[in-house]
Computed example of a mutant assay.
Amino acid sequence: MGAFLNKPKVEKHTARGEGNGLRFGVSSMQGWRAEMEDAHSAVVGLPRGLAAWSFFAVYDGHAGTQVAQYCCQHLLEHITGNADFQAGPGDGDGGDEEEPSVESVVRGVRTGFLQIDEHMRGLLGRRHAACARDRSGSTAVAVMVSPRHIFFINCGDSRGLLSRAGAVHFSTQDHKPGDPRERERIQNAGGAVLVQRVNGSLAVSRALGDFAFKRVRGKGPTEQLVSPEPEVSAIRRCPAGDEFVVLACDGIWDVMSNDELCDFVRSRLQVHGDLERVCSDVIDTCLYKGSRDNMSVVLVCLGGAPSICPEAVRRDAELDQFLEQRVQEILRRSSGGQIPDLVNVMRTLATESIPNLPPGGELASKRSVVEAAYNKVQPCASEDTDNAVLFFRGFS
């Protein structure tokens, strides 16, 4: 869904913070889309006595921004404020008997999603006709981090993962119409999966909002063509092994696999400790790998997160120096006095075996280094930069 621009909007919105033994960074970019429809949440210290708990989320809106923005502002209160979340004996996470049990959290998150979805439907019904026709929806991927557990929450095709001991330990599963469980529910509600979309239109099978797909009479909220029900997974924390959590919209996952993104983030953490910069590196890399969507990523570093490694810093500096020298060589050796444009320089580099490129990011993650080296010799026109984005799409 959504129209595309003639050239991407590459300005980023970034943030960072820390607390409860966690550090986090956030970055988002509109990219090629005509509108920025993503939103995100980062809350350290939750209400109702859960000061040792934290909540992070990415909301990927579609057909408008209304649902994503409303969820960004109100989903957490719907989760922590309902009776299911607050019920049950404590699990000892913070030494407070009033804290919710794992079972209560799982039930409460589900209830919170169903509540906010119904609440938004009611809000639309009470507004004027233009708002009542709002067709926007949003996926949601989140983590709720307690002192003993990480609760992964997913509704839609945004995705979250946990890196532990140098590898992907857990990742959420995308809710796509082609999945057998999702297809069965859609068909039972009288719908069809056409070109991998609900009724040939919507590319996700679970989402908040999207009320045009939630009007089947005689069916409950979780039995509609599109369901607002999240999947919730409780992962016991491993303080020594847990490295980081990544939450991202599908604009990231369209061009990077779980392992690629995990390896890339780990490699960048070993080079510098700026989490905003790591998130920005992820988004830039995905742009040059060919992502056409809005892009948002939240990185949460846990106790076992990689620290700066002098050897990794040295290799990265040597790589940048090598690329700068190689670009200069390509320009010097251009035949007939005709200086190749940036696209052709990158095309040449893409055919070469370059050592120590960042895993998962490869040459795309060093595109800014290549451009800077090029501009020292030949200033790069803006259209060349845009063409460079299109070039990388063919090599990802």
Rank of each mutant, 00 (worst) to 15 (best):
L114H: 09
E118N: 11
M36I: 04
E99C: 14
E99N: 05
D84Q: 12
A39M: 10
R133Q: 15
A57Q: 10
G125A: 15
G81S: 09
D93S: 14
G81L: 01
G31F: 11
G122C: 13
A87N: 05
H74E: 13
G25Q: 08
E103R: 02
R33G: 00
M36C: 08
H62M: 13
L123R: 00
V43T: 13
Q73W: 11
H119F: 15
A68N: 04
N82H: 04
R135T: 11
R48E: 15
A57F: 00
G88F: 12
G61L: 11
A87Q: 01
A42M: 11
P47I: 12
T111V: 01
W53N: 07
S104H: 00
R148L: 15
R48N: 13
R133D: 14
L50H: 03
M144E: 03
S101D: 06
V67S: 06
A132G: 12
V102K: 03
G49K: 01
R110D: 12
E77C: 06
D96M: 12
D117S: 07
I79G: 06
Y70R: 04
G112R: 02
G45Q: 05
G108H: 08
G95E: 10
S158I: 09
T65H: 00
R148F: 13
A39Q: 10
F151T: 03
R33D: 02
G125R: 06
G137I: 01
T111P: 01
G156F: 10
S146W: 01
S28K: 07
A140K: 08
H74P: 01
A51F: 09
S158L: 10
G122R: 01
V106E: 14
H149G: 07
G95I: 14
D117R: 02
E35S: 11
I153T: 03
R135I: 12
G81E: 08
G95F: 10
A52W: 07
G92T: 12
V26H: 02
C72I: 04
S27A: 15
S138G: 11
L46A: 10
A132W: 09
A63T: 00
G95C: 13
R148E: 12
I116R: 03
A34T: 02
C131A: 15
A83W: 05
V109S: 09
H74C: 07
I79S: 07
Y70Q: 01
Y70A: 11
D134S: 02
M120T: 00
C72L: 04
L124D: 06
D96T: 05
S136R: 00
L114Y: 06
L75F: 06
R107A: 15
L123S: 04
S138Y: 11
I116P: 03
V145A: 10
V143G: 00
G64H: 01
R135V: 13
R48K: 13
S146I: 10
E35N: 04
G88S: 03
R135A: 15
